[in-house]
Amino acid sequence: MSKLQKFIETKEYKRFAEFCDACIKYKYIGICYGPPGVGKTLSSRYYSNWDFIEKQIAYKGADEIGLNADDQILKARTIFYTAPAVRATKMTDQINLIGSRMNMVRTMYKREEENYTTDAFEDIDLIIVDEIDRLKVQNLEQLRDIYDRNKYCNDIDWNAWY
């Protein structure tokens, strides 16, 4: 979505947001499905504020991390990830990397370097995986492993999947 486009919170989007909120509250693994073009990806990106968060965690070198950060990174509690179309063998590492980058940018923005944690999912309430139909059973097991490892550890209050 470009800066000129505005997202319209439709009835369907509000149902999607309610679904995500329930997944967070009750620690569900949820699946939202529908035909192509109905707005699942746009709704996911909007719900997670990913257009802004992605810019803040994208960097080429360590000296650039947190360079464009603002208050939105401190409020971010959702990871948005699009499953690759070809191979998903590095999926777990990529999701962990996204979480780690969000943590590093938060730390740099707050200037609390001594409180940096290596836990990629600290303060993460929800992980949205888009295009999940591209994944094989093995990859779904990887997602389940992330869920299981973080559901009961470190008092992390997250665990929902799209």
Rank of each mutant, 00 (worst) to 15 (best):
I31W: 10
I127V: 10
I156D: 07
D71C: 05
I95P: 01
E131S: 04
G66Y: 10
L140Y: 14
I8W: 06
E9L: 04
E64V: 06
A22Y: 12
L140F: 14
K110P: 04
I124D: 01
I53M: 03
S48H: 09
R144T: 02
K40L: 06
Q72R: 15
C153S: 13
I73C: 02
D71I: 11
Y33Q: 13
M102F: 06
V86W: 10
M102V: 09
L126V: 03
Q94W: 07
A85M: 06
Y116W: 12
I8R: 08
W158M: 02
Y116M: 02
V38E: 07
T41V: 01
C23H: 06
L4C: 08
K6R: 14
M104L: 15
L140T: 05
V129A: 00
V105G: 05
Y28W: 12
L67F: 13
K25G: 08
E122C: 02
Y109T: 07
Y81V: 00
A17Q: 12
R149Q: 10
Y26Q: 10
E113W: 12
Y26S: 04
A69R: 12
E18W: 09
M1P: 07
Y13V: 04
L97I: 04
N115H: 09
I98C: 02
Y59P: 09
S43C: 11
C32F: 10
R77S: 13
D51E: 14
S43T: 09
Y33P: 04
D63I: 12
K60Q: 13
K6E: 13
I127P: 01
M91S: 03
E131Y: 05
D63T: 14
I95G: 00
R106W: 08
K90Q: 11
E9Y: 12
I24L: 02
Y33E: 11
I124C: 01
